[in-house]
Amino acid sequence: MWRDTRMIMLTAVVAAVYAAVLIPFNAIVIIPGLTSVRPANVFPVIFGIMFGPAAAWGSAIGNLISDIFSGQFGAGSLGGFVGNFAFGFVSYRLWGNLGALSSGEEPDFRGNSGRQLVEYVIIAVVGSTACAAIIAWWLDILGLFPFSVFATIVTINNTLASAVLGPPLLYLVYPRIKEMGLLYPDVLRSEDYDTSAGARSTLGGYGVAATAILWVVIGVAIGVGVEGFGFFVSMGSVFNQGGSTIQMALGAVGFLSLFAFSFLARERFSQIRRN
């Protein structure tokens, strides 16, 4: 991807647009200074589907720029960078990779729009959850906020913005972006992306979805004290004054699984586009 000038420019533009919309537009402020429903959170999903890896890197850089310009740059920014990368990357890898749940169509919401909507919403939920899990895990490791609190808030925020805004935005902009020739299968050389229509790829897609959702569900369950885990993190069990050891271990497994499954899930959008 980094060999192609247009992909590099797309990365820069995605990053700049994401940051430019992240900062001034807050739809609903939940905790001042900490969390709000941000319409910009739709971008990693729709950009991920259209611009592929450029959107993943662009979302990560855009979130970093937002941290820099809003005065929140710090150790926590690394989690935001990786989490937003995953937000875009998951969306890129999942379109067309959800087996029976996939529409098998381009995301223009014009043909079989009901099935496209189902596929889109699943991707929005999975991307939002993966992003939330990674950021919450990192903040828990740093000992800034408990996993269960942050993962819940970010999952809801991201899902709301991306699920509500994504379909109308794609309906309106997808044909124009396609006409401009900026969809990633039109920009990248075929040897620059891994494509597959095999069952292994679908398994990867389901694996990404299951991992992201289970990570957040189990992590929150541990935090709120179900299944015999204590509600409290005793000070003695707090690893090196960072997050709780069990959340760290769960996060390590979740992160590695997400990484492995998302590489198993080869992109399939280029084949849909060709057909």
Binding site: W2, R3, I8, M9, T11, A12, V13, A15, A16, V17, A19, A20, V21, I23, P24, F25, W57, G58, I61, G62, L64, I65, F69
Partner: peptide, 21 residues
């Protein structure tokens, strides 16, 4: 290439921020 993307994004960001406003 990555540094170039970050540098370009930092330059474009104020323009898009102005456009958004």
């Amino acid at each position: 290439a990555f540094c170039f993307a970050v540098g370009t994004a930092l330059r474009l960001f104020p323009t898009f921020l102005g456009a958004a406003g």
